[in-house]
Design a protein around this nucleic acid. Structure first.
Length: 136
DNA sequence: GCCAACGTTGGC
DNA sequence: GCCAACGTTGGC
């Protein structure tokens, strides 16, 4: 099982909406590196849900429920894909970008190294560190 | 194939 | 609001 992180601007698509809809097709990714990561996702993989821009914090954990298919919001024949995600749990407390940056165990975190990429791999130990940081 | 121009993302 | 990083586009 692999671990990932996806970003969303809460004004565009928030964790609350994601929970209310009980999951969604993760469409609209238009970057090749992010697309490659989507293609590597398998059902059961766990995904950190990050609110970018206005909040800058990991807010929840999602699970991949369907592997990549052609993105229905893209032109037919385009290379873009979408996976299906569903919410697993909100974090007890959001883990802010500042917290992530401050933790030496997360110095290699892909989010911190490639801040513009919207679909990123997370190492299992990094995933566990983020969860532990969210504990009250 | 190179590179300048331009657009977008996202942190500050 | 600004700007750095970075991806894409298009002229040459």
């Amino acid at each position: 099982m692999k671990h990932w992180l996806v970003k969303s601007e809460p004004e565009a698509y928030s964790w609350a909406t994601f929970v209310r809809e009980d999951g969604t097709a993760w469409t609209g990714v238009r970057n090749y590196q992010a697309r490659n990561n989507l293609n590597l996702m398998q059902p059961g993989d766990l995904v950190l849900f990050y609110h970018s821009v206005s909040e800058k914090a990991v807010v929840g954990v999602a699970e991949v429920t369907a592997q990549a298919i052609p993105d229905p919001t893209a032109e037919a024949g385009s290379p873009w894909v979408a996976v299906a995600l569903r919410p697993v749990q909100a974090l007890p407390r959001p883990v802010s970008l500042a917290q992530l940056k401050a933790d030496a165990r997360l110095s290699e975190l892909a989010l911190l190294r490639q801040s513009r990429l919207s679909v990123l791999p997370v190492r299992p130990e990094e995933f566990d560190v983020v969860l532990s940081l969210s504990q009250p």
